[in-house]
Structure formats: structure tokens, C-alpha cells
């Protein structure tokens, strides 16, 4: 009646796969960003679990850096989405055929 560490890793793998499928099937750029955040979180869960397995806090420090980089990525990404919406009046990823305009 207790939880082996592998269960957390399986949960993190499931969350990562769900996020990857979401990036593949959704068409709104904003929801795709949300799915990327979900994948980053599942990787953080893996890092924290391995930190516990190794009895070492380095994994938690790395997860902290992942959170910081994710925050920076969301800021720039959402600014890009706002620009895309100004150009296309839509956030549909399928309508974007070229990087330039």
C-alpha cells in the first residue's frame, strides 16, 4: 500500500504524451502553447521524482530553471500570437503559411 517512484514517472509520461497529442491536433496557437506548458510541467514532475530517487536537490533546482524559462517563453510567444492576430485576425495555425507576414 505505497507508491513506487515509477508511478509518478508513468503519470508524467502520460501527461507529456497528452500534451504532444494536443499540439498535433489543436488548431488555435494559444491552445497549442498551453499544451507545450503541459509538456514542460510533466518534465518538471519527472525531474522532481528523480531528485527524490537520488536524494539530491539538484533536480529541483533544474525544475526551477525550467519554470523560469517557461515564463520567458510564454511572454515572447504570446506577444507573437498577438502580432499574428493583428495580421490575420485569427489565431489558427493552419492559416499561417509563411514566416514573413
Amino acid at each position: 500500500m505505497s507508491v513506487p517512484a515509477g508511478y509518478y514517472l508513468i503519470l508524467a509520461a502520460a501527461l507529456f504524451s497528452i500534451g504532444a497529442v494536443g499540439v498535433l491536433i489543436r488548431r488555435s496557437v494559444i491552445v497549442m502553447f498551453m499544451c507545450v506548458e503541459l509538456m514542460l510541467n510533466s518534465v518538471n514532475l519527472t525531474l522532481v521524482t528523480f531528485a527524490r530517487i537520488q536524494a539530491n536537490l539538484d533536480g529541483q533546482v533544474l525544475a526551477f530553471f525550467v519554470i523560469v524559462v517557461a515564463a520567458a517563453e510564454v511572454v515572447v510567444g504570446l506577444a507573437l500570437v498577438v502580432n499574428l492576430f493583428r495580421l490575420r485576425a485569427s489565431t489558427d495555425a493552419d492559416g499561417v503559411g509563411a514566416l514573413r507576414a
Binding site: 508511478y7 504532444a20 497529442v21
Partner: peptide, 26 residues
């Protein structure tokens, strides 16, 4: 996409969680 997701899950779970499912991994 669903097939890719299931394959990704199986491979990730086998690669990361495989050695940590026994009694000693509590």
C-alpha cells in the same frame, strides 16, 4: 496523432519508469 501519442507514452514510460516499479522503489 493518437497513435503517435500512445507510442510516445509507451516508450517514455518504459524508458523512465521501467526500473522503478518494484518494492524497493517505494
Amino acid at each position: 496523432a493518437s497513435i503517435v501519442g500512445v507510442l510516445l507514452f509507451v516508450s517514455l514510460a518504459a524508458a523512465t519508469a521501467g526500473p522503478f516499479l518494484g518494492d524497493a522503489s517505494v
